[in-house]
């Protein structure tokens, strides 16, 4: 996975709260291999029921601005695959599902939190069309249709997004500590091993 520091692209607003991962990708698509691409599954049923849906009218989109509790519910990482394969690199919302946020960062998608007022201002200025947008990861700023806001970003997540890092590589460097931990844990608490 390659990292990124800046996006210069287009943004749209999805002015709904609680867009859960079941909406982001209905369960019936999740048996597909990733190599086939998940972009077509993004908000599939909602887009199909609404020909005028913003993501049907604008398909070259990098940034989404939405309301609270985005990505709540099921831990399905496929919801992130659908966003990423559609081309989206950043989502701005007042709050996110916790598991979704981790999944997003693990796939190079920025889940950035902004206060409710900032989000409302952005939704108002974007309206029902798309808008010019810039996201700068190192400065933690977003500029959409001339409005600029700063967002908070966990420094670890920033590092991962910028470098496109994979945790497995980092963790295997600590293999000795992990093996020592395992040995000590089961020596002190033999009950913690499954009985056979």
């Amino acid at each position: 996975m390659s990292g990124w520091t800046q996006i210069n692209g287009r943004a749209v607003a999805l002015p709904q709260a609680n867009i859960d991962t079941d909406q982001l990708i209905p369960a019936r698509f999740m048996s597909a291999p990733r190599a086939d691409g998940y972009g077509g599954f993004l908000l599939h049923d909602i887009r199909q029921d609404d020909a005028d849906h913003i993501l049907n009218r604008y398909t070259n989109i990098d940034i989404v601005v939405t309301r609270r509790n985005f990505g709540s519910g099921s831990s399905r990482e496929a919801a992130v695959y659908a966003l990423v394969d559609f081309g989206i690199k950043a989502v701005f919302a007042p709050s996110f599902g916790d598991i979704f946020r981790s999944n997003a960062v693990n796939n190079g998608l920025l889940p950035a939190q902004l206060p409710e007022d900032d989000i409302e201002a952005l939704i108002a200025v974007i309206g029902r069309e798309d808008a010019d947008a810039t996201v700068d990861l190192s400065a933690s700023t977003v500029q959409i249709a001339g409005q600029e806001f700063s967002f908070e970003l966990d420094p670890v997540w920033r590092k991962k997004l910028v470098n496109g890092w994979d945790d497995i590589d980092l963790t295997t460097q600590h293999d000795d500590e992990i093996q020592a931990f395992r040995a000590a844990r089961f020596a002190a608490h033999p009950w913690a091993l499954p009985a056979s």
Binding site: D98, I99, I168, T172
Partner: peptide, 22 residues
């Protein structure tokens, strides 16, 4: 706690998980 696919792969590979304390 529940985790996503990348984290499942990490646990399979290392039997550990990186977490920020809630």
């Amino acid at each position: 706690f529940g985790v996503g696919a990348t984290e499942v792969a990490h646990i399979l590979a290392t039997q550990t998980i990186w977490q920020r304390r809630p």
